[in-house]
């Protein structure tokens, strides 16, 4: 499970060649909204050249494409996945088909992931069917575009996107996919970022996209389990082992009854910190 994704405009070599030094779990090279229309040709050439010639250190690379036709010109073994803007069920299925055929033809050593960018009212309402698509590994909420569709302003409190956040979370979790929160755009406001990230985490998001490297550490920290959660999870696993040996089904830790869902959550927490 990832925690942080960093957007990098694909026409900006200084940012692209330094993307790998930051601690984001994934980088999103952006060919779409991060590049003005007159430069989209240059951005594509730059991205392809970058993938072919620059030796990036280990990082999950995701490309936000403009449209599905672009995929075949930029597809590359170093790419992990694609972020499809204004994603809906139809376009995602088309992208899926396109990738399947390219994978067959070009014999890559891995399959490409897709992250669906949920930024229209329809895709919010249809989030469950989007999450169901096997190739989709995550849903990313695009609150800025969504707010425009709704005719509202964005706020830190986030009431205007509460429903959308929940839909993304429930849909993603129904199929064990990543629920990725929208970026916080005030890059100089670390306290605002913290609040926004906690708001997202506390209702079930497991990751957040960001638009500036200075935001990454805050996001990673918040999406990591706390030391208390880790200690408690360890206690649970130790108690479970003991209970299993003793042939006991139910057991308690620190006075709390521990049943299956809690055991599963403890396992997830310990897996998160393995990396």
């Amino acid at each position: 499970m990832i925690r942080s994704l960093l957007f990098i405009p694909a026409n900006h070599p200084g940012m692209m060649q330094n993307a790998d030094i930051f601690n984001a779990d994934a980088v999103i090279f952006d060919l779409e909204d991060g590049v003005i229309a007159s430069e989209k040709d240059a951005a594509k050439d730059l991205l392809v050249s970058f993938l072919n010639h620059f030796h990036m250190q280990h990082k999950k690379i995701i490309i936000r494409i403009n449209n599905i036709d672009e995929v075949q010109t930029i597809i590359h073994p170093f790419i992990h996945g694609f972020l499809l803007p204004k994603a809906d069920e139809a376009s995602l299925l088309l992208l899926d088909k396109t990738l399947t055929s390219l994978e067959k033809k070009m014999k890559f050593d891995h399959l490409f992931h897709v992250i669906a960018l949920i930024e229209t009212p329809e895709s919010v309402l249809n989030a469950l069917n989007i999450a169901k698509i096997p190739r989709v590994t995550g849903l990313l909420l695009g609150a800025e575009d969504l707010a425009t569709h709704l005719g509202v302003s964005r706020t830190l409190e986030g009431r205007e996107i509460e429903f959308a956040r929940n839909m993304v979370i429930y849909a993603a979790k129904a199929y064990q996919k990543n629920a990725i929160d929208t970026p916080y755009t005030d890059v100089n406001n670390i306290n605002g970022l913290k609040q926004d990230t906690f708001n997202a985490k506390n209702i079930g998001m497991n990751a957040k996209a960001c638009i500036h490297p200075n935001q990454i550490d805050t996001i990673n920290e918040i999406f990591m389990p706390t030391q208390e959660e880790i200690d408690f999870a360890r206690k649970i696993m130790i108690a479970k082992e003991k209970a299993d040996l003793d042939g006991l089904g139910a057991f308690s830790v620190d006075g709390k009854m521990i049943d299956q869902p809690i055991i599963l959550r403890a396992k997830h927490i310990l897996e998160k910190i393995k990396d």
């Binding site: 040709d41 240059a42 050439d45 730059l46 050249s49 970058f50 010639h53």
Partner: peptide
């Protein structure tokens, strides 16, 4: 890689 790309574009 940047020089190459800019020339191509």
């Amino acid at each position: 890689y940047t020089i190459m790309a800019r020339i191509k574009t």
